[in-house]
Design a protein around this nucleic acid. Structure first.
Lengths: 188, 188
DNA sequence: TAGCTCATGTAACGAGTTACATGATTCG
DNA sequence: CGAATCATGTAACTCGTTACATGAGCTA
């Protein structure tokens, strides 16, 4: 049920509409949590009904009207309660690793293209994170005196960067292994 | 629907009962996919009904009888089809990162214990993986002439090891950040 | 006028979690 | 005698994904 909490954090950082939240889940919050707009609208409705969020109709010019959500007192309390409750360290969920092990029962070399595609996707994501870091934290135009929120956002982003770097290095290892198996011949 | 495929891979590596599969999902397969016994029994039932798996009743002495599952022809074909179909690179799902960003709206120092607990859990997991690597791949008793299956299992394990190392280093970074914020005082 | 962005939703289904439930054997 | 291991399941619920659905304005 961490989507609720991710939404609370995002709305505390800045109130916004369901649509805007969906976009944030493709960007900053999306570094560590994903959600589609369908899911978000459903959860927003429930959280308003439960009194965790407030809604405000905002009329706009040249665009459809929107509903702006913000965190109500009980929402803030719910987040605080969750922050003080220990959670279990999660484990990985990695489809590609299943494929790699499965390749032993098929043609390992056939996986090379797929792994290269994934590596490229991770390279792109890394470039995107690094650009964001430069823009928001380490560049010349970044706000110099960092408050706690900034520091915490930055350390989370560094986690995303470390994850992408590690993944790219591992995929290089996977590719080297697949090439070695290919060279050894199908049957060795 | 990767649980189906993880089960196919595991049963191709070695046939076994639902109970045994559940244990493997706490160990080797669990490096990159988790599942509880409830989920496993449900999926096994469906896969047998769909003709992907075969079951055999095995009588045992001193223990309850068990059902041994193995992969049928169509199961192998289903795995091959999945292997040849591209999948999208996944993104992270990391509760702890949500908490870290949320800490800006509570007391960041209160998170220190929690983060240390997580770091210890990842240290334990890393030690466990390294022991497995020594036993099965790099130690003196490991099988010397590695076949494709062995090589692929090893590269996946190396991925798990790299992930744990990266995570531990990142959590150190997080802890340093939290300590810095604590020293700067609650309000800075 | 065709496609993109902004904006909000419903419905159906599949996947994952939590709680409940049973029962034999082995080891201390 | 109690706890752990081996062994199998059901039921209820929540979460996540996919498909469907609408409509205004702006831009090439």
């Amino acid at each position: 049920m961490a989507l609720d909490h991710a939404i609370l954090v995002s709305l505390l950082e800045k109130p916004g509409s369901g649509y805007e939240l969906a976009r944030r889940f493709e960007r900053s919050i999306g570094y560590f949590w994903t959600a589609t707009h369908q899911q978000i609208y459903r959860v927003l409705g429930r959280m308003v009904a439960d009194g965790l969020l407030l809604v405000r109709e905002v009329e706009q010019q040249g665009r459809p009207d929107k509903k702006e959500y913000s965190v109500a007192g009980p929402g803030r309390a719910a987040l605080a309660a969750w922050l003080h409750k220990p959670i279990e360290p999660e484990s990985l969920r990695h489809d590609l690793a299943v494929k790699i092990r499965g390749a032993a029962f098929d043609d390992p070399a056939a996986l090379i293209d797929e792994v290269e595609r994934h590596r490229q996707a991770h390279r792109d994501r890394l470039a995107h994170y690094l650009a964001g870091e430069l823009r928001d934290f380490t560049g010349p135009d970044a706000p110099a005196p960092q408050d706690a929120g900034q520091e915490l956002q930055h350390v989370v982003l560094r986690g995303g960067i470390a994850y992408e770097r590690m993944t790219i290095a591992w995929l290089d290892d996977v590719l080297a292994t697949l090439h070695r198996l290919e060279a050894a011949g199908p049957g060795a």
